[in-house]
């Protein structure tokens, strides 16, 4: 690991100033950053340690009913916050299906949003990767790409965003509060992450010095609580990134869908909101045929970026399943195996 300057600001303003210097990176838990630094994937000159800043570790309900979560709230704290989990059960389920208890105890909300792709070629410093080095090329194309993107990818990058947490968050119109050199601003989560297009080196729209200080879940989101689920297909029963995942949330009235939210994980370089599916679902009777139509609509633009055509079919199927699970109701408690196909009590037939 390259030597770096370690600075510890005492206010957000100081932190932003420090991190505005070129070559700086924010250090929260470091769960992803240190991993990347050890692998030689990133090599910042300066770490701006924000873990000691006060006021960023709160979960609060604002006057307008939206829920604001400080960027330094730990993943586990949020998932186990009883009030939060009862209002946003799919978010809690997603959090608990990610990584391990140890990592969830350390990793922060802000850090989760900003975690980098798990593409093996991004991590392998000897491979060509446009995300790591602009213009270097993409060795994932034509390489080992069974788990790569099927939506929103470009010839320059076929990586995926690895977060579970972000998938239900994007479905619920989460807003990201950012503080930067020019002051505070809000960014809808759906607009935080960049698709690769021609500039895959850019993960997010954040500018130098920008710091995520909180996220907000709008008040309207908790109306989905009785019918919202997160489901994640992976290659181990636990402790594996999603092959494909889905968040599905419904507002139902006597079997009729008033409003639907659907998002996919593991399919693109950002958490993928499936608005076409949502539109198709709204106003209709919740049944299997409708769910299939919605799933088809969600994947209409999907195409394989390598040996991963199966992910398109898998994504359709997981949407259908997640919708049917959501329709049958949120369980009282997150299952022993969160978001798993093997969580008992899950009915598999719609």
């Amino acid at each position: 690991m390259k030597s770096f300057e370690y600075v510890r600001p005492t206010t957000v303003r100081e932190a932003v100033a420090a991190a505005s210097e070129p070559g700086s990176a924010y250090l929260a838990a470091g769960s992803n950053l240190l991993d990347l630094m050890k692998g030689g994937v990133v090599a910042p000159d300066r770490l701006v340690d924000i873990t000691h800043l006060t006021g960023l570790d709160r979960i609060e309900t604002l006057a307008n009913g939206s829920v604001r979560i400080g960027a330094l709230v730990r993943n586990a704290e949020l998932a186990h916050d009883a009030h939060f989990a009862s209002h946003f059960p799919a978010v809690a389920e997603a959090l608990l299906s990610g990584a391990t208890a140890q990592l969830r105890n350390a990793a922060t909300v802000g850090g989760n949003l900003l975690q980098r792709t798990r593409c093996g070629y991004f991590y392998d410093a000897a491979s060509a990767c446009n995300k790591r080095v602009a213009g270097a090329g993409c060795d994932a194309r034509g390489g080992d790409n069974r788990l790569h993107a099927v939506l929103g990818w470009s010839e320059n990058c076929i990586a995926t965003h690895p977060s579970d947490f972000c998938v239900p968050l994007v479905a619920f119109d989460t807003v990201v509060e950012v503080e930067g050199r020019a002051g505070k601003r809000d960014i809808p989560l759906d607009q935080l992450h960049c698709l690769p297009a021609d500039a895959p080196e850019r993960d997010t729209v954040l500018e130098r010095g920008d710091m995520i200080v909180a996220i907000r879940l709008p008040a309207a989101a908790d109306r989905f609580a009785p019918h919202s689920r997160y489901l994640k297909v992976r290659e181990r029963t636990s402790y594996a990134f999603a092959v494909v995942s889905a968040a599905a949330a419904l507002r139902l009235d006597a079997g009729r869908i008033l409003e639907a939210r659907v998002a996919l994980g593991g399919v693109a370089l950002k958490p993928w909101r499936a608005r076409e599916a949502e539109l198709l679902l709204a106003g209709n009777q919740a049944d299997a045929a409708l769910f299939h139509r919605a799933a088809t609509a969600a994947l209409v633009d999907a195409k394989p970026s390598g040996d991963n055509g199966f992910k398109i079919e898998l994504a359709r199927r997981i949407i259908v399943r997640a919708l049917s699970l959501a329709a049958s109701g949120t369980p009282a408690r997150v299952a022993a195996l969160p978001a798993s196909a093997f969580a008992s009590g899950v009915t598999h037939h719609v």
């Binding site: 798990r118 000897a126 491979s127 060795d139 390489g143 080992d144 181990r236 636990s238």
Partner: peptide
């Protein structure tokens, strides 16, 4: 990777061995 001869999942996060669950 057949082109480079490097192992792309040379880590315990993606070289899957069974976990407790």
């Amino acid at each position: 990777d057949r082109r480079s001869g490097r192992i792309i999942n040379a880590n315990l996060g993606e070289y899957y061995i069974p976990v407790n669950a």
